[in-house]
């Protein structure tokens, strides 16, 4: 039971991180970044390829690579598309995502690359008669810490307040002196850092990295930001968390029927969207602007 709750929390937390990474970028430039999945993938590849280094060094390395990739993505592609219709940017990011997948396939091969990353993570911890895996405990703690850190960052620092202002109304924020290029680049860096964390959490659970490694996570995180309220950062995180928790619980409860857990999840999403088309934390009017 405790294991189930912990699993749900850690999966929910992971999805919340991924959704937040997507939501940060969406907020500043109305871009649904499908290629986020390739950021998660590159983070995982970096961890697997630098497996011989100490884990912290390897992880730092992957954070640097991932955020660099995110910034490059913005500079080379998305900067030129700024102001285009959201649908155009969505398709462009879909194309970029496919492009990077093919590049990974060319570089690393289509078959999974694997390495045992932090083997002690799969150990179990006995605690008052219940046993829980180290990985789920650490993931749960890590995501809670990260979410609190993000909360602090968004609410208390100048960068965070600028980000929130830009998400609410980008044009007005610019008029009030928010530097657009600067802020957007920073949002991409943050999104890259979050992707690196998500990639690391995923790769510990499943060290088989292949070119489409981040795809599933990203699609579900996207669904998360839509049900949470696409133009609100806390909404994104909440939506992601809900998706993760529902998925984890469905996987536990459905038993043999767990192959259909995605269908149930998506059905739940449909219902939420029908009741609240703008997402759980939306204020109604915001949809019109998008």
């Amino acid at each position: 039971m405790i294991q189930t709750i912990l699993n749900a929390l850690s999966l929910g937390g992971t999805y919340a991180l991924a959704s937040l990474g997507l939501g940060l970028v969406f907020g500043v430039m109305r871009l649904v970044n499908f290629a986020y999945s390739e950021l998660i993938t590159i983070a995982a590849y970096t961890l697997v390829m630098t497996n011989q280094l100490p884990i912290m060094v390897s992880f730092l390395f992957s954070v640097v690579v991932t955020s660099l990739a995110a910034v490059l993505m913005e500079l080379l592609i998305y900067r030129r598309l700024r102001g285009a219709a959201p649908a155009i940017m969505l398709v462009a990011s879909f194309g970029l995502s496919k492009l990077l997948q093919q590049v990974y396939e060319l570089c690393f091969g289509a078959l999974p690359r694997s390495a045992s990353i932090a083997p002690w993570m799969s150990g179990e911890l006995k605690f008052a008669g219940v046993s829980i895996t180290n990985a789920s405990l650490i993931t749960a703690i890590l995501t809670i810490v990260l979410l609190l850190a993000m909360r602090y960052l968004l609410n208390k620092t100048s960068f965070g307040i600028q980000l929130k202002a830009a998400s609410a109304d980008f044009r007005t924020a610019r008029l009030l002196g928010v530097r657009a290029n600067h802020l957007i680049s920073l949002a991409f860096v943050m999104s890259g850092v979050l992707a690196a964390f998500v990639g690391a959490i995923l790769v510990v659970g499943n060290p088989q990295v292949e070119p489409m490694f981040g795809m599933n996570m990203t699609i579900l995180a996207l669904v998360g930001i839509v049900i949470g309220g696409i133009s609100s950062l806390p909404g994104s995180a909440l939506g992601g968390f809900i998706v993760g928790v529902i998925l984890s619980l469905l996987n536990t409860w459905l038993g043999n029927g767990r192959v259909y857990s995605y269908s149930w999840l998506f059905a739940a999403v449909f219902i939420i969207l029908l009741v609240r088309p703008g997402g759980l934390l939306s204020k109604g009017q915001e949809m019109e602007r998008v």
Partner: peptide, 17 residues
């Protein structure tokens, strides 16, 4: 009934189901 991006993502959910 959905608009804009929510509609796009919801159609993705349809494909997924």
């Amino acid at each position: 009934r959905l608009n804009g991006l929510a509609a796009g993502i919801a159609t993705f959910a349809l494909l997924g189901i």
